[in-house]
């Protein structure tokens, strides 16, 4: 039976968590315990999500920075770091052991740090142009949201290592919080951030195709569902949230299809691929949603508990 006080409790728990309260309330620390196999499986799912995010960054940043002639040496960093993150993720995804791997850990931490620096660079690039922080520069200077996917790949990867480290029968914790809840929150925030970037770029494209509204409407619902799962008090089945995460996963792949179609709408179509792939909508970008969808599914596995699968 639900009691009336619960929503308020949840809110307080969230406030405490956001305020960095060291002793997170019991709610945010609680979660079903997991077995060794389960924690490794969840971590592998997370690694798979990270692999997709990293490959999206690898392809996208290589293309965009190639387009920008690698004018600044620092522009080599994201392709290199995302390659490392991709290798680490593939390694993790095929690793059945229930123990964290130091080198993976280090690479993930490195990519998160590189992404944070990337934000700084991109922000600087927007601000230094004539007109400063104006719409035109947000549209056409270094895309402010692009490093986001690398940041997510890094942080989710670090989280994956923590989950893997859970002792058999224990509750996976990350920085004092239940891993499932933290991952659900992180993925939810990741979805919203990605939606922000997509919105900016689809707004730049004037939402000329109605399908361009999908990635700014479907994922926010998923983000909401995940956030509510993160704050719920009881492990239970969440078919709707699960469905929505699958939808987001598929959306990322469908987006790639739409972008391939979008490239063809430029002068010369696919015959003129060498220009249009750079000019048209970025084909590698949408799978970020796929990576996040997988992370959401991993979080749900922890939140729902193995029996609820």
């Amino acid at each position: 039976m639900r009691t009336r006080a619960r929503p308020a409790d949840r809110l307080r728990a969230l406030q405490d968590a956001l305020a960095g309260n060291a002793r997170s309330p019991a709610l945010l620390r609680s979660e079903p315990p997991v077995g060794a196999q389960e924690s490794a499986d969840v971590a592998r799912l997370l690694n798979a999500g990270c692999a997709i995010l990293a490959s999206s960054v690898l392809a996208d940043s290589s293309m965009e920075h190639y387009r920008g002639s690698f004018e600044n040496k620092a522009m080599f960093v994201p392709p290199i770091v995302s390659t490392l993150a991709l290798i680490a993720s593939l390694h993790g995804a095929s690793d059945r052991s229930a123990r964290a791997e130091r080198r993976r850990d280090a690479i993930y931490a490195l990519s998160a740090a590189a992404a944070a620096a990337g934000f700084g660079f991109h922000l600087y690039n927007v601000g230094k142009r004539d007109g400063g922080f104006c719409w035109e520069n947000f549209f056409y200077a270094a895309p402010i949201g692009a490093p986001w996917a690398l940041l997510l790949s890094g942080t989710l990867g670090v989280a994956a290592e923590r989950v893997r480290d859970t002792r058999p029968g224990g509750i996976p914790h990350i920085f004092g919080m239940a891993a499932g809840r933290l991952l659900a929150g992180l993925t939810s925030a990741g979805l919203l951030g990605t939606v922000g970037e997509v919105w900016l770029l689809h707004f730049r494209g004037a939402f000329q195709d109605p399908f361009m509204y999908l990635p700014v409407t479907l994922p926010p619902v998923g983000a909401g569902l995940l956030a509510s799962a993160a704050l719920s008090s009881k492990p239970k089945k969440r078919p709707l949230t699960r469905f929505w995460m699958k939808l987001v996963t598929v959306l990322g792949l469908a987006g790639m299809g739409f972008h391939i179609y979008g490239v063809h709408r430029n002068m010369g179509g696919w015959r003129n691929w060498s220009q249009n792939v750079l000019n048209g909508p970025p084909i590698p970008a949408p799978p970020s949603f796929t990576g996040l969808g997988l992370a959401g599914l991993a979080a749900l596995r922890l939140l729902e508990g193995p029996k609820n699968e």
């Binding site: 730049r204 494209g205 004037a206 000329q208 195709d209 709408r265 430029n266 002068m267 000019n279």
Partner: peptide, 9 residues
Amino acid sequence: SAPRGLAHP
């Protein structure tokens, strides 16, 4: 600045 029907950007 974006496609429109059959017209290219």
